[in-house]
Design a protein around this nucleic acid. Sequence first.
DNA 1: TGGGTCATGTAACCTGTTACATGATTAG
DNA 2: CTAATCATGTAACAGGTTACATGACCCA
Lengths: 180, 180
Amino acid sequence: MSLKHGLLGLLTIRKSSGYDLSKLFQESLSFFWVANQSQIYRELDKMEEIGWVVSSKVEQDARPNKRVYGITKEGNQELIRWLKEGNAEDLSVVRNPLLMKLFFSGKVEKDHAVALLKNYRAICVQARAEISEQVAGIGDVEETAAKPAYWLYATEYSIRQYDFQIKWIDETIARLESLK
Amino acid sequence: MSLKHGLLGLLTIRKSSGYDLSKLFQESLSFFWVANQSQIYRELDKMEEIGWVVSSKVEQDARPNKRVYGITKEGNQELIRWLKEGNAEDLSVVRNPLLMKLFFSGKVEKDHAVALLKNYRAICVQARAEISEQVAGIGDVEETAAKPAYWLYATEYSIRQYDFQIKWIDETIARLESLK
DNA sequence: TGGGTCATGTAACCTGTTACATGATTAG
DNA sequence: CTAATCATGTAACAGGTTACATGACCCA
């Protein structure tokens, strides 16, 4: 249940509407989590039922009225509980559509597999560029024992994962092309 | 929509019941895709409605009766279509609960983050061992231009990804522990 | 002889995706 | 002046997870 907790985490930064959260999410968490807007609205509803957040309606004249959410004491407690829980089983959910397709590519000509890999490579290259650009835009970071730069570790992970994937793709294409 | 296609792929190997597929899935695709049994049953139902598979009831006396599925011509066509389609956008769905938790770990003591990483490390080590054991059990492979060993590329990917993750975890723990 | 596992599934719920709606503002 | 984008969401459907059901067989 990471999405709810991600939203709770964002709400500890500031009160936000669904729309705000959706933007915030894009800028921060989207490198390791995809969520679309409507999902965010629904999760906010649910979390209000549970009591992790409260909302208040804000009237606007230039734009549609909005509903601004804030985290409650219970929400904060839940966030901390989740962060402390050691359980790592559910961290290893694997679902890799690229490998699924590649796995069965013996049913079609080799060229399709190569094209698949090349298309995905382009996506990796772009995603990697976006992340490192974003990191560069933040500049140097000071870390202390009291404030480790966790966001930096996460972006490092992502960048290196793309590097790994690109390398593997290149090798795999070369291997495919060298087959006689 | 990779699960349906994965099941279609497995059904090109042999006719199977939901239960059989669930086992087959475990042995072959589970390294890069998690699917639970009930999901498989439901997808089979859906695919029968669409006409990608047909089933027949097989009476058994020692065990509950079963329903055996086979792939249809339409199912085969769909599998090939899916394999040929170049679309790589939907291959890059990211959802990483580890990074989500790590990202917000500034809210709790450093030890919790370290414990989280260590737990996940253990899972990676085990998963890696299981995969390489499975590969070892298969022995040497002959590849030709007509028959590339795609399954091998997929397992290579998985092994290397675990190596990458383990390395990153070790570095990150070291980094966390060195903070003053 | 009682608790696990095999073999087969169904039902209910939770999460993710796609499509749509509305009125203002900005870009070409 | 027309099309995109901003700013706000709702509704419906598809896919994933958890819990349960049933009867045989196998191990201690």
